[in-house]
Design a protein around this nucleic acid. Structure first.
Length: 489
RNA sequence: GGCGGCAUGGCCAAGUGGUAAGGCAGAGGAUUGCAAAUCCUUUACCCCCAGUUCGAAUCUGGGUGCCGCCUCCA
């Protein structure tokens, strides 16, 4: 079975066939860098990261391009608010983007163009559209004429005549007056006094939002690409307009596949800046949510469906990840990948191939990460069990007999988990985290006192010490052999 | 008004014609001085109505409810 993907353009799930055998070109709409990324961004980039990893796993050579929009009204507003510059705001947020996405183990794109560095291509494209009669200028602005594209609306399934103009309540009157058609959109915006601007044949100004993607796709990947990615909220108008611009200019289809991820909801409503119901990735990570928990949370749902963000769901993901991580951690520490594959029996290999098959088939089926995760959990269960028994030091002869199977199973789990970008995280240990030497010494003394009390069967004292430490945020864990570990809860 | 999507156990969520994956939580058991951790077992006729079919959560029609987009948006 081969990869099938749901194409927004056709509204169907269709077999994926690349333009060039063995190679896949992908463009993913990136962020406007005026603020930290929130969970909605995390979902989008985690999901597309899995698409990319899966294609790589299947042996494709993938070229993945993602942009940064570093020219935008909101960036300018932010710069004005904080008394800095557009460049300063952009640079800071790009750095933060990498910090957050790296933490989530999202592979960096092969190339990440920025609007400010693609102005030549943007101006050239606008010039071409003007020459073809698909663009017109008005008071220093340049607009794309949607009537120039006969099939305008094909991606979002819209009939312009039946749209309710201004239904979103966000149209500016002055701008509307300059347009020939209500759905015409800006390719170039004249700079207002005092605003940063770039020179152009139409006067100083800056590019419209949609044109940068068209220019970047062409510059980095050519006229037609395999897959174009983005959030479902970009279908209209952003992607519709990209198609209009690019296809009028080149006469070729812009992308064969258009994939869109569903929104993250909070209380049944879309997470967004305007509603003020967003949670930044940074805030989640700072609050102690592990990056892998976030990945698991996102991947447990199908990418096209809405995903409700609740504290309960996040806790469930954290618990789930803990179990998976226990198995992965065991593998990372105990399995030597080089030695693990040779010894398993043919029967075991056959069984494991079954898991591999199911996992691959799940992802091939329009990225069914939920089903793929189920395979991971099934693979992990006996490994968790072994990890626990080894930890207690009561591994049995039967375990040893099964060792080749478990080693092979562990190696497979590691391989498949990596396709979902899930990698072992260090488990909490008794190692001192924050806190000075004196604190640790005092803690050790308390633990020693408790050990003494336990030896004398004075459990009241032992429990009081446990409670005292718990009140200070220290959790004691008794291990076999009289050893007591502690963690900061 | 137009376009699109969703409705599966306490929660999250797969499954799109042959008698309901997985995760979380809960319950029972094992282990444990206590606690934590761990292991085992266990919990569903799939929003409503009608229809097609030998057979439907899965197809068709009609309802009901919720959500997204209609020039900020991942």
């Amino acid at each position: 079975m081969s990869l099938r993907l749901t194409n927004t353009l056709t509204r169907r799930t269709e077999p994926f066939v690349p333009l060039v055998p063995g190679k896949v070109s992908i463009y993913c709409c990136g962020v406007t860098v005026y603020d930290l990324c929130h969970l909605g961004h995390a979902r989008s980039y985690i999901v597309w990261d899995v698409l990319r990893r899966h294609l790589l796993w299947r042996g494709y050579a993938v070229t993945f391009v993602q942009n940064f929009t570093d020219i935008d009204d909101k960036i300018l507003r932010r710069a004005a608010e904080e008394g800095s510059s557009m460049e300063a705001v952009s640079e800071r947020n790009i750095a933060d983007y990498f910090t957050d996405m790296d933490a989530l183990n999202i592979l960096r794109a092969d190339r990440m163009p920025r609007a400010t560095l693609c102005l030549d291509g943007i101006r050239a494209l606008i010039g071409e559209l003007e020459a073809k009669g698909a663009a017109y200028s008005a008071d220093g602005d340049v607009y794309f004429a949607v009537m120039a594209k006969a099939d305008y609306g094909k991606l979002s399934g819209r009939d312009l005549d039946q749209q309710q103009e201004g239904a979103s309540g966000r149209l500016a009157d002055e701008e509307e007056a300059r347009k020939h058609h209500p759905f015409d959109f800006a390719l170039w915006k004249a700079a207002k006094p005092g605003e940063p601007s770039f020179p152009s044949p139409w006067g100083p100004g800056r590019p419209g939002w949609h044109i940068e993607c068209s220019a970047m796709v062409r510059q980095e990947l050519g006229d037609t690409i395999d897959i174009h990615l983005g959030g479902a909220d970009l279908i209209f108008p952003h992607h519709e307009n990209e198609i209009a611009q690019s296809e009028v200019a080149s006469g070729q289809p812009l992308a064969h596949f258009w994939l869109h991820n569903g929104m993250v909801n909070v209380g049944g409503e879309k997470m967004s800046k305007s509603l003020g119901n967003f949670t930044t990735i940074r805030a989640l990570l700072d609050s102690g949510v592990s990056p892998m928990t976030l990945r698991l949370f996102v991947l447990q749902a199908h990418y096209r469906k809405p995903l409700d963000f609740t504290a309960e769901a996040l806790e469930a993901a954290a618990s789930g990840w803990k179990g998976l991580n226990a198995a992965l951690d065991l593998v990372a520490r105990a399995v030597d990948p080089a030695a693990s594959t040779a010894s398993a029996s043919a029967e075991v290999e056959g069984a494991l191939d079954g898991f591999r098959e199911r996992f691959g088939a799940a992802l091939d089926d329009d990225l069914n990460t939920s089903a793929a995760l189920a395979v991971l959990f099934e693979l992990a269960r006996p490994l968790r069990s072994l990890a626990h028994r080894l930890q207690r030091g009561d591994g049995t002869a039967a375990d040893e007999a099964r060792e080749p199977e478990l080693l092979a199973r562990g190696a497979l789990l590691q391989e498949l988990a990596a396709v979902l970008g899930l990698i072992a995280e260090a488990l909490p240990t008794g190692a001192p985290a924050a806190g000075g030497e004196a604190d640790v010494a005092e803690l050790e003394a308390a633990i020693a006192a408790r050990r003494q009390a336990k030896a004398e069967r004075d459990f009241a004292t032992a429990d009081r010490i446990r409670e005292d430490l718990r009140a200070r945020g220290i959790e004691l864990i008794d291990r076999p052999g009289g050893v007591t570990d502690w963690i900061r809860a």
